[in-house]
Amino acid sequence: MSQLVEIKDLHITFPLRRGALQALRGMSYTMDKGEILGIVGESGSGKSVSVQAMMRLLPDYTQIEGSILFEGEDVLALDRKKELPRFRSSKTAMIFQEPGRSFDPLYSMEKTFRETLRLHYPAETDEQLKARAVELLREVQIPQPEERLSSYPHQFSGGQLQRIMIALALAGNPRLLIADEPTTALDVTIQAQIIELLLKLRKKRDMGIIFISHDLDLVARIADRILVLYGGLVMEEAPAQQLYKQPAHPYSRGLLHALPAFGTHYSTDELHTIPGTVPNPIHPEPGCPFAPRCSRVQKECTEKIPDLEALNTGESESVKLRCINPYKEGLK
């Protein structure tokens, strides 16, 4: 398979008056064409910042080190005026957490689509663009797309708006769709619909997806491979099912255990917790960021950050782990 994204040793720091906020402290991964990569982490883990850097959405004062290659092209070197708009609209696209806040309330859907589609098809007439919009809405399974084009954002439900966001994102035939917590604000039944829709679209268009969420259960459902982020560092990288059944890092395992399994009940089953809170990104302690909360902590853990190393699992697919004392056995 060929590579779509290659990120090497990405450091992102925000110089604040209180000190330097280290949002990412060295992230590396590669992603293949048509792959769904899940990025899991809690608030402040750096998961959103990592994709915002790829879309060059971070403010100018941000210090970015490392490299981001997209189909071999150096994203950080793209010219802001000449190259960036084309990269953002036709190679990549992004959908966000709150679809309701991402639309202009005074634009009808037709106008919204026309504006986006015109960028990609400057020579076409309004009629032709409208036909394309209808086609896109049909692809994301909005009922009666012709009629709905004249509606305004407030006339749609949250789930429908997220579908329309996806349709807009597809307008430029992106190679990569970045979905940053796209279902967090939606109801569970609608969330399930959006997940199935994304899986269908990936298959049909052979489009890569980066799916960001705090919900490991959900990411395991959609992703091929998962990165677990904590304190700006990749803690574990593994194929989704492997990570779900046999999380090796104490943090990954803690995250899975912290969600009650369906069918368990407080009267008979204990709910595991991870004690403590997330680390301070301004003055991080030396050593593994998870060490203060970890039940398997060793003396060395608090002295030096362990390396992210490939684990020999005996299987063909690779697992990378940043831990000197991981779990070796599967769950239950």
Partner: peptide
């Protein structure tokens, strides 16, 4: 709340 805090 975050998952790990939710269980707390």
């Amino acid at each position: 709340l975050d998952v790990s805090i939710q269980s707390q």
